[in-house]
Amino acid sequence: MISYDFEYFKPSSIDKAISLFQSLDQQGKEPIYFSGGTEIITLGRVNKIKTGAVIDIKEIPECLVLKRESNKLTFGAAQTLNRIRESQYFRFLNKAIGEIADHTARNKITLGGNMCANIIYRETILPLLLTDSQVIIAGPGGLKQLPLNEVFDQTLRLQRGELLIQIMIEEKESELPFLCIKKRRQWDVGYPLMTIAALKKDQQIRFAFSGLCSYPFRNEKMDGSLNNQALPKEARIEEAMRQIPAPVLKDVHGSEDYRRFVFKNTLLDVLDTIGGTEIE
């Protein structure tokens, strides 16, 4: 049970949602856009999220788009993870989705909700960062289309009142070879330790990580090290590990040393699988 009250709104258009946000914000209600709402409800229950109003975006047609057209894949931010997975449009994203929460929860969790969540894992970001996807963002000034890599830095950098509407990917990017490995400390359904995602393009491997640090990320320096064919694989990994851009997490799911151990060995598996040739 959520101990505090909030108002609930369900606008039917982008314009209505944006102006509603502005007016609720002016009234001091600290509004939040509500897509699947799972995090707002669970964190709200323990008073870690407080709001005076939620704006449900599930009736905005643009947020529900799910299509493959003109060599582009478009995913509405309010589409549930299960619907996206069942569309079978993007195998890499499907693999990441299949490891998030559980099947029933994925009937509620949405792509936009996962991308904009507070939870540190946010694994849907990984394939989207690696495939140079674009995001459509609505704000008081209208719509804008931007590369995800430009607007994602630890979190999706939205201005106050802006709303993520859609995510677009070139279809050919979705067909590239990939790997997405999620590691848990226990069982198949425990909370995650970390996820390593990799995509091979033009003989280079791109990497993105979740659960290693307190936010998901892609790092060009680490990519450079891991693709340095002049070094054996172990040395590439050692070099990449020296460039991790933030402190490695230590929490109930794993100590820093354990995470580093799992990270190193999983990277080795990735390089062995899609890493190409090693120069001895």
Binding site: M1, Y8, G36, G37, T38, I41, T42, R45, N82, A101, D102, H103, T104, A105, N107, K108
Partner: peptide
């Protein structure tokens, strides 16, 4: 009450739904 255990599952429009995760 956190979407983990599934004890509160109901059916909403033909889909299983954890009723603790829905307003």
């Amino acid at each position: 009450l956190n979407g983990d255990c599934g004890a509160c599952t109901v059916d909403v429009d033909g889909q299983a739904m954890k009723s603790c995760l829905m307003l």
